[in-house]
Amino acid sequence: MRPRRATRPWAKAKAVGATLAVGAMITGAALPAFNPEITSVAAASAEVTTAASDFAQSYTSTDEIRAEIAPRGNFAATTPEEIKETRSRAVAAAIAAGMPLGSAMEIPVADRVVMPMADGTYTFTDGFGASRPGRSHLGQDFAAGVGTPINAAMTGCVSRSTESYQGYGVTIQIESIVDGQAVSTVYSHLNYGTRAVEVGDCVEAGQYIGDVGSTGYVFGSCLHFEVHINTVAVDPMPWLEKNVS
């Protein structure tokens, strides 16, 4: 019987090393099957690191810095409050830039016209073309007591609403489309604090918009009413007689 050969220490270490090498090969072959993105993630990380390094090396204090604001997707106003706020911002921006109201919103077509004040609440005084210092009167005055209600003459959207507009005092202007023409109606000398509409609001024919006052350059209290067709002032009386239904 042959005596058992003693195992040398270096041989045992060699065997363990071989086992670990085989295990590493098996593990290396198995990892992609469990996580196929490891290689691509590592590569991407390396690219980002390299790009960041290149950017840092190439940047100088004289380089121009630009801020790019990405769009917020296809956001749209849905609630009445959001719609009104969005429209008001667009209208304010357009008017501030000297652009017409129609550049910021769709001007409605007016299918009927009404008198701006109720029957029996007013009397006619100065009419279109009456003499004024350095100019002629561009509208029709409806004399009435302070506080008498004023109504929109037709469906439209408000392009001006202010407590002070030159000699017109408290003034509202409304834009409409009538028979394919752009028609603006102006309501002036209203009483302070009675404006019921703001720029960007849309109104219906006969809707209350404010009260008669005596603001601006005027003697007594009245509504000064103007009609502009394609930006040209016309006599309101024949126009009202033709269109009021």
Rank of each mutant, 00 (worst) to 15 (best):
A93T: 15
E37H: 15
V244T: 12
V203E: 08
G167R: 05
G210I: 00
I69P: 06
A97F: 10
V232L: 10
G120L: 03
G28H: 07
V158S: 02
G120Y: 04
P100M: 08
A77M: 02
M237W: 12
K14G: 15
I95V: 13
T60F: 09
E198K: 15
T123L: 06
E241T: 00
S159M: 09
V109N: 13
A93L: 13
C157S: 15
T39W: 12
A153Y: 07
T19G: 14
R8G: 09
L223S: 10
V22F: 08
S159V: 06
V41H: 10
P36D: 10
L101C: 09
V41I: 12
G17H: 07
S53V: 07
N243D: 06
G127Y: 03
A44K: 12
G73I: 10
G193D: 03
S40E: 15
G180R: 13
V183G: 00
T123F: 05
V186T: 11
E81R: 11
G134K: 04
Q173P: 01
L138R: 01
A52L: 15
A13K: 13
N191D: 15
A24Q: 04
R2H: 09
S164K: 12
A233Q: 07
G180Q: 09
W239K: 07
G206A: 07
D211T: 00
S58V: 03
T171I: 00
V41Y: 13
G206F: 04
L190V: 01
V178N: 11
G17P: 03
T185I: 01
R2G: 08
V91Y: 02
F225W: 03
V234C: 13
E37K: 13
G220W: 01
K84Y: 09
H228Y: 09
T121P: 04
T215Q: 01
V48N: 15
Y192L: 10
N35G: 11
D179W: 09
A44S: 10
G129D: 05
V170E: 05
A56E: 13
G216Y: 02
L31D: 04
P116C: 08
P133R: 10
D119N: 12
A205P: 07
F124N: 14
D54M: 13
V227R: 10
H228F: 14
A144I: 04
V227Y: 04
K242G: 02
A18Y: 05
V113F: 04
V158N: 01
I107N: 03
T27H: 08
E226T: 10
L101E: 07
A43N: 15
R4Q: 07
V178R: 08
G180I: 07
G23W: 14
G216P: 04
I150P: 13
T49P: 02
D111C: 00
N74Y: 08
G206Q: 04
R8Y: 03
V212W: 01
A152Q: 07
H224D: 04
P32Q: 10
T7C: 10
